[in-house]
Design a protein around this nucleic acid. Structure first.
Lengths: 136, 136, 136, 136
DNA sequence: GTGGTCTAGACCACG
DNA sequence: GTGGTCTAGACCACT
């Protein structure tokens, strides 16, 4: 009875991220912000592929990565569903990944010419809806 | 008689970024933090390649990208020098890039389970030395 | 200078595991048993695909899963290398996975008619060379 | 007048195994542990399907696989009954299947970081109630 | 209908 | 040369 949530995903060819990543990131964000609640069914591989006009394999790959990371569960013949949140990674690995993400981010924004306060404000605005939600 | 600044660059094979990007990011960071001041001469392609034990083509590629982005200027027969800060990107482009960087960052840290405050603190610490320097 | 280790992999069509899994499991075993030491270069995607007469994409998929699990590191343009061991998973997740693995194993051996002692002996023999090695 | 044994089966959507396999494995385990003794009648396809709220086709498929493997016998018009234990597989086939099960298990637990003794203890605990029962 | 696997072949970035 | 991405299309298992 769980209806498939529409899911607004915007692919952009100007975005340097590969399509698979854009899809995965978009869904990750939707799950973290509870736009897609636990147990919700995701659009089918073929359906989403058609909606985004990309190859079904591309969608399938994004989905399978999300499944490997514990964001979604796959049920043979039924579809894909938002999984209950659980901590997959060790503390050491989480800390390591945070460091990498910050280094990458720093390299990306250096040279854009924005003052620190502006960048921080934007980061806060982007993270607020996706952090501290799934454990609330 | 501007002496070539030594330039401490640490390439890491554990770092997922390709070597070209590690070099470019490292130099970009050094310029932004004024470790390499305006007018300072950069190491030669061959010299840096030897120092880092990488292919000279890789260094040359990193340099040419930095030049295209306006970070460094090449003076024929003399070498490469840190350029005066100037903004080469349109406001729309800068804003778009910031948005993408933030999206990517958000996707990376979501699911790590850290509270917003912790992430923000880390980001601030990482950005402080590289932002607000060249525009000061 | 690190020569590619030959790597004996036996694919079997009688094996119910999909090819991707057989490849991944085989390499995981080789790394865990230190047959492939840390830093060793793995056979190239195309090379291994040719050796096993499977599609390069299949090998690439197996490799990318191993990379996601932290077994190997990929270096653009250079190849794939055995990564230094690190604990990626949280205690809760490790315990969960052990439980699933044991349940699956139990379901597989029930009905084969072997006495408990025989099964345990075989399991011990199989696990001895792959457990307690990477931390030794 | 053999009454249908209630049969406690727990289907879990968190379990990665497909439903057919969960049903088959559950019944196999119940028979092996003598929870379902030889001659006991199994619930009807429709009854079990209703109890588990799954498609009757799924239950029927699970039953037909169990029958093919010799676990249960169908008596026309009467229903399905637990068969007397017999070995339908050749020694070579049994040995091959044990090998595959052990390989899969080893690949699953390698990398979890548990000491051999801990894994063996858990395996013993899981196998004790289902092995050495039907041949005793 | 659903997802999962596999093949084939193309194009790109990196060194 | 290396790996990474994407498309196209086929076949299978599950519900």
């Amino acid at each position: 009875m769980s209806k498939t949530t529409p899911l607004m995903l915007q692919l952009s060819s100007a975005d340097p991220r590969p399509i698979v990543r854009q899809i995965g990131d978009g869904i990750r964000r939707a799950i973290a912000s509870r736009e897609l609640p636990v147990g919700a069914q995701l659009p089918s591989v073929r359906g989403l592929a058609q909606q985004l006009t990309v190859n079904p394999n591309t969608v399938a790959k994004a989905y399978s990565e999300l499944a490997a990371e514990g964001w979604i569960d796959s049920r043979q013949g039924l579809g894909l569903f938002v999984a209950a949140p659980r901590q997959m990674l060790s503390d050491a690995e989480r800390s390591r990944r945070l460091g990498i993400a910050i280094d990458t981010f720093a390299a990306d924004v250096v040279g854009l010419g924005y003052p620190l306060s502006h960048v921080i404000d934007q980061v806060k605005a982007a993270l607020k809806p996706v952090l501290n939600k799934r454990t609330a």
